[in-house]
Design a protein around this nucleic acid. Sequence first.
DNA 1: AAATAACCCAACCGCCGGCGG
DNA 2: GCCGCCGGCGGTTGGGTTATT
Length: 291
Amino acid sequence: MHSAIFGIGTGGGLCGCGSAAVRMRRRLLALSHDDLGRVDPLASSARAVCRAEEDARQPAVVFTSGMAVTVWTQWGAEGHADAGGWRRPCECCVVFDDGTGQRSTRTRWVVLAAVKRGPWTAEEDARLRSYMEQHAGGGAGAGNWMAVPSKAGLRRCGKSCRLRWLNYLRPGIRHGGFTADEDRLIVALHAAVGSRWSLIAGHLPGRTDNHVKNYWNTRLKKRVEMIFSFSPNAGNYQPSPPSFSRYGGAGDYSSSSAQSESMDEMMVNWCSQINQLELQDELLLQNVQPQ
DNA sequence: AAATAACCCAACCGCCGGCGG
DNA sequence: GCCGCCGGCGGTTGGGTTATT
C-alpha cells in the first residue's frame, strides 16, 4: 500500500486548510491503520471529539498532496459501489465520539484514476509550458507546484508537473548526447562527491540531475569500471566516501570555500587520471589491433 | 522472421529538510 | 516546540527501442 494514499494535503480549494477538523482527521489517519490501509475503528487512538457544526464544514472531497484524491462519504453513509470507474484501494472507517457517547462512521475512498500518470502528451506539455511562461516567467520555480495542475488545466499531480518542467520542458535543457568533456567532468565529480547528481549536474549547463544520473547508470559507469579494471596502473574505481552525503556528512562540499577548492583540486586530479587511463587504453588497443 | 535479451530513459517512489502556522 | 506541507533529491521501475540469437 502506497503511503501517499494516506496523506491529506492542502492543495485543493475545497479542503478547508488548517481547520481543526482537518487537522484532527490528519492525525486520525496517521494512526493505527493496518497493512490494508484500514483504520481500526475500535482503536482508542482513532477516537476523537468532533463537534457537529465543525463536521458540517468539512468538505466532501479532499485533494491529497500526493498522487491520489480522497473522497469522504457523509457520516453514517455507505460508500459509492462504483464511483464512475474510480478505484478504491483502501477504505478507512473512523469512529468518532461527539461527546455524547454517540459514534458514527464514514468511509474514505481513494481515487487514483482522477490523477493522470505515465508519459506526457504534447498537449500536456504545451499546457504546462504555457502556464510556466505566463506565471513563472519561464524560470525554474512555480512558487507552489501543488497549485499548478489545477491552474494549468492538467490532471497531474504537482510533483509530476515539477519533474516534467525541470527535466524536460525548462528552457536551456540539452537533450543531445554527452560530450567527451562532459564525460570526464562527470567521472571526476562522481569520484569526488559520489551520487550527488544535482551537484554534479550543476557543473554541466543544460543537463539535469536525472539526465546525468541515467547517463552514468546506463553507460558511463560501465566504461569507467572497464577502464579501471583493464588498466594495469589503476586501482579499483572508488567513488568518494559517504562523508559527502547530503545527510549530515562532515565533508559537505557546498558548505565552505576551502572544501570547494579541495574538490576542484580533486577534479583536476581525477580528470588527469582519467585522461591518462584513456590514453593507456588507446595504446593498449592499438597494440592489440592486428596490423 | 520471430523470440529473447540488453539497453535506455522518462517517470515514479519514498525519504528528508526547510519553513510556516 | 510541534506538526504538516512542500520542494528537492537519489534510487528504482516499467515500458519502448535496439541488438542479438
